[in-house]
């Protein structure tokens, strides 16, 4: 198992009332999984992703990677976890505007002090996501779908165990959405655990497992049953 999410609960206080954004969620990420979590805005799915990425600390529960709870790690260790163990695809445009495509992709490779040459690996990944021709371009010249591909290539540069994608198709048209989902599916088939949250029902068709999140509670769905969301 790459990452194990165990009984995560996150409480927020709104005024005097507290409410659970994430309520006792457990989830295992295994190689080859393409897990899709569907939920409306405010259902707690983003909070869950932040917790899995170690960006938010839960009120209760553990996220285990390599048998250890990530919330007991130092800043340096948890940064290394984000850098090496997971590949995060943030929502929206997340490329750095002042770096060209290939530099964007190879950036995480060097964030842990790696000095080896990375351009070849970055270009290989760009070929894999189908935008090698754009390697020298700057993000402002790329379309939304192309930017997503850059983010996917970037998430893969350190060969992580799991890819975590936060609404990767939210601002894409139907065809581009299909392309990106196919790409993510192929990443999962290549042996990674892929976890994505979305409110796009179509994504379910690509998933190996699908969940619905509502008021912080995660429920696994049979594929046919999610249509009511």
């Amino acid at each position: 198992m790459a990452i194990a999410v165990k009984n995560i609960t996150k409480e927020y206080k709104r005024g005097k009332r507290s409410f659970k954004a994430v309520d006792d969620v457990s989830l295992g990420l295994h190689p080859g999984d393409f897990i899709v979590i569907i939920g409306k805005s405010g259902s707690g799915k983003s909070t869950l992703l932040n917790i899995i990425a170690g960006l938010t600390y839960p009120t209760d529960g553990r996220v285990e990677a390599d048998e250890s709870n990530i919330f007991t790690l130092t800043d340096k260790q948890i940064s290394r976890y984000r850098n090496q163990t997971i590949g995060y695809i943030p929502q929206g445009h997340s490329t750095l505007a002042d770096l060209n495509v290939v530099d964007n992709v190879r950036l995480p490779f060097h964030l842990n002090g790696e000095k080896r040459i990375s351009a070849d690996k970055a270009e290989e990944l760009l070929t894999r996501v189908g935008i090698h021709a754009l390697a020298k371009n700057f993000p402002k010249h790329l379309s939304g779908g192309e930017l997503k591909r850059v983010a996917i290539a970037r998430a893969l540069i350190n060969d992580p165990e799991a890819i975590i994608a936060d609404e990767p198709t939210s601002d894409l048209d139907k065809q581009t959405t299909a392309e990106v989902l196919t790409l993510l599916r192929s990443v999962a088939e290549g042996g990674k655990a892929v976890l994505m949250v979305t409110h796009d029902l179509d994504a379910v068709k690509y998933a190996t497992r699908s969940f619905v999140m509502e008021s912080g509670v995660l429920t696994e769905q049979k594929k046919e049953a999610v249509l009511y969301v």
């Binding site: 800043d75 340096k76 940064s79 943030p90 997340s94 490329t95 750095l96 350190n158």
Partner: peptide
């Protein structure tokens, strides 16, 4: 973004 990518 840098933080998410693993910058300390």
């Amino acid at each position: 973004v840098l933080r998410i990518l693993g910058a300390t």
